[in-house]
Amino acid sequence: MSSKVASMRDAVADLVRDGDTVAIEGFTHLISFAAGHEIIRQRKRDLTLARMTPDLIYDQMVAGGVARKLIFSWLGNPGVGGLNAIRRVTEGPGASLEMEEYSHFGMVARYTAGAMNLPFFPLRSYFETDLPKVNPLIRPIDSPYGDGTVYAVPPLRPDVTVIHAQRADAEGNTQVWGLLGCQKEAAFAADRVIVVVEELVEGSIIRADPNRTIVPGIVVDAVVVEPFGAHPSYVQGYYDRDNRFYRDWDPISRDAALTDGWLAEWVHGLSGRAEYVAKLGEERVTSLRPSAPAPSGVVDYGEYR
């Protein structure tokens, strides 16, 4: 099997196209800021950005001018406040960014329908709420078995899904531990998949612990090795969430000029993640390492010949 290892620059240039629906998934954990920044750097245009929680990465991408539309379920800076760059283009009479919103389970259900090649996915949410009134894609359906009504959401099939992971091999067999979010569903739902990892490992490492594989290489198009590529989000066992950055972003993002200045300095002014990490500095990076190791126990799969 040929290696899918690519640079972030090449992976984004080859696999992300203007007008695409792009899902950079990862629920607070494993958010590929490195891929988001590269999409901004390459000045992609008219993207539909799908994510359960747009988080700072989509705030930055909207500020960076790559987005036409957002598909989401919770729009905020977790524990801090709002996403101010997005608010600037979604509030008041001048609102310019198109929005399509769901609940968390609705977004997960959409990816799941996409991953399973189903025409819709049923759930008990949305009854007696105003969400179906503002999003006509959320529709009631009667059970074919005559025991009630549920709501349906349509499949979400991103053109490109990007996920960040602890490790993968060169074929794209990808392992994650810690919060799993909906990355598996988003990857299987997508036409093209970019996996960004902290470490590239031999296939034998993957095969020694197959229960930990969430995405097999068969659905992966590119493997990008980008240590610290999820900062300021985190990677379980590798580095902590940089809560200071999440707080610092609030005043920056409230001011359009400061936001542009930040993008000029930290995105357009840098060639890629390695320079970003160097600019962040050793002290900041070290401060985010786990305070102590907490290894899992070892399980024995046994050998059967």
Binding site: T53, S73, G92, E101, S103, F105, R124, T129, L131
Partner: peptide, 21 residues
């Protein structure tokens, strides 16, 4: 107003399904 809100809040997240289930 939803289309042109005075303040855009976070939205449901999991709240809608928590309220129901």
């Amino acid at each position: 107003d939803y289309a042109h809100p005075k303040t855009r809040l976070p939205g449901s997240g999991g709240a809608c399904e928590i309220a129901i289930n």
